[in-house]
Write a protein that binds this DNA or RNA. Structure first.
Lengths: 110, 110
DNA sequence: AGTAAATTACGCACTTTTTTGTTACCAGGA
DNA sequence: TCCTGGTAACAAAAAAGTGCGTAATTTACT
């Protein structure tokens, strides 16, 4: 998904939230401040390249805040911004919708 | 995003909604029944292969319903399912969140 | 005391994998 | 022949993974 096809805000959010990692990272950051290495341990299958890339993207989108501390070894902390926190219930709502609509329903792919 | 990393419903929805097209297609189908060709005209930059692929995915996810009519030339109609309609406000909420949080805010990337 | 090694959060270049696009082809009636 | 709504095969593009390097300080060993 290189660039957008419309100027619709929905397309813009989805560009940020699309993929396996954004919502997972938001989910873990919701628990509180996390360091780079902690996030790696939280999701062991992400590569460090992807993790930095995704964190940068979320940061640019104003969802995540990055704080770098002086000293060695380098220490960096990640948090959700206020906007990021506001986003959480919306994402949860999607999860809830999915659960309810896949449980009772008719269209099951068996 | 080949397969999932957790059994979290959020990851499952995002697998379906990720990418440029799913939300756009839902948006257009919200207007009512659409035929394959109409959807192509609605989003001229999608390739017909992608369109079929995405529609199949949405269909399997229980968001879209496909109705095939006998006769030639072949006629096929697409609709949102009830679950699909319920999903719309949730997606809109994301768009609204994006709008409000990118407009007033501090983290602008200029 | 002196040296070696580990630590943290990446960036960069290169390779592999995955996704998307392109083209050709199908059916049968107007 | 064109129309519709596809499918299948191959090609191109994009995304993701891998391994190496880096910085300055602690810790580990001899």
């Amino acid at each position: 998904m290189k660039d957008l096809v419309s100027r619709c805000p929905i397309e813009e959010v989805m560009q940020v939230l699309s993929g396996r990692w954004p919502t997972l990272l938001i989910y873990y950051l919701q628990e509180g401040t996390k360091r780079f290495g902690e996030l790696r341990r939280d999701n062991p299958t992400i590569s460090h390249r992807m993790l930095t890339l995704e964190l940068r993207k979320l940061q640019e989108a104003g969802i995540v805040e990055r704080t770098e501390f002086e000293g060695y070894p380098l220490r960096v902390e990640y948090n959700l911004t206020p906007a990021g926190h506001q986003l959480v219930p919306l994402i949860d709502a999607l999860g809830d919708w999915w659960e309810t609509h896949t449980s009772a329903d008719v269209h099951e792919v068996l």
